[in-house]
């Protein structure tokens, strides 16, 4: 039986202590397989973004275990020393507001993560161009982010997330700023990436129009996964 790429086991997260204690996640377990596109839905404050931050190794859980790509990353404490390096090499992030660096061109935004990973300027640019072509935005390679449409910017953000060929891609409401047609295109693109790269894609979303595009929808309420 294939192992999940992302395995969240009995993870809890609380903020504050005593009367001020807020339980953001309570005993959450979730497995996501390679090639699977999973949606996290739920009302505001249900713990969706907290769970995404935990899987992205941004937020330290209070309890539980986190396994990414067969490596136990967290088991009551972080077991990986350089979390930032791990994020760079193994996790791709796609943001609601694309978060492209405004002072870099499209191709530079994509090449940046490769440069940070140690690739040469030439190799990074070649790989960035390849990804931009794959996502059909290569004609905008020299444009600055401010000159892109919402759909173009999100495709560039996806290209950046894919640059280091991560097996785990986390997306925070990637279609929130897009109209229905563009949202559909982005979701189709994510599905294609998941299948072709055998990647796990976990997406936080409120957008009911794209619920049908997920392999599985996980609903969160008060920090717990709804049965």
């Amino acid at each position: 039986m294939p192992k999940p790429l992302v395995s969240v086991r009995n993870v809890s997260k609380h903020f504050g202590e005593g009367e001020a204690r807020v339980d953001a996640l309570v005993d959450v377990s979730l497995d996501v397989m390679a090639g699977e596109v999973v949606g996290l839905k739920g009302p505001s404050g249900s713990g969706k973004t907290t769970l995404l931050n935990v899987i992205g190794c941004i937020l330290e859980p209070s309890a539980g275990q986190l396994v990414l790509n067969d490596e136990v990353v967290f088991d009551r404490k972080w077991l990986t020393r350089d979390l930032r390096r791990m994020r760079l090499e193994r996790i791709g992030f796609i943001f609601q507001a694309h978060n492209l660096l405004p002072f870099l061109s499209v191709v530079e935004n994509v090449a940046l993560v490769l440069r940070l990973a140690g690739q040469s300027e030439q190799a990074a640019t070649a790989r960035a161009d390849e990804l931009l072509t794959y996502l059909e935005v290569s004609h905008r390679r020299k444009a600055m982010p401010a000159q892109l449409s919402g759909g173009e910017a999100q495709r560039v953000a996806i290209a950046r997330a894919l640059a280091n060929q991560p097996r785990v891609i986390l997306a925070d409401e990637p279609t929130a700023a897009l109209d229905s047609e563009r949202a559909r295109i982005v979701m189709d693109l994510l599905r294609r990436v998941a299948v072709e790269n055998e990647a796990s894609i976990i997406t936080v979303t409120h957008d009911e129009k794209i619920f049908s595009r997920f392999d599985r929808l996980v609903s969160l309420r008060d920090g717990r996964i709804d049965a």
Partner: peptide, 16 residues
């Protein structure tokens, strides 16, 4: 600040 947070999130080391 947002760009710096993005850089940190995508894995840029502190020296960058």
């Amino acid at each position: 600040l947002r760009e710096i947070a993005t850089l940190k999130l995508i894995g840029a080391p502190d020296r960058v």
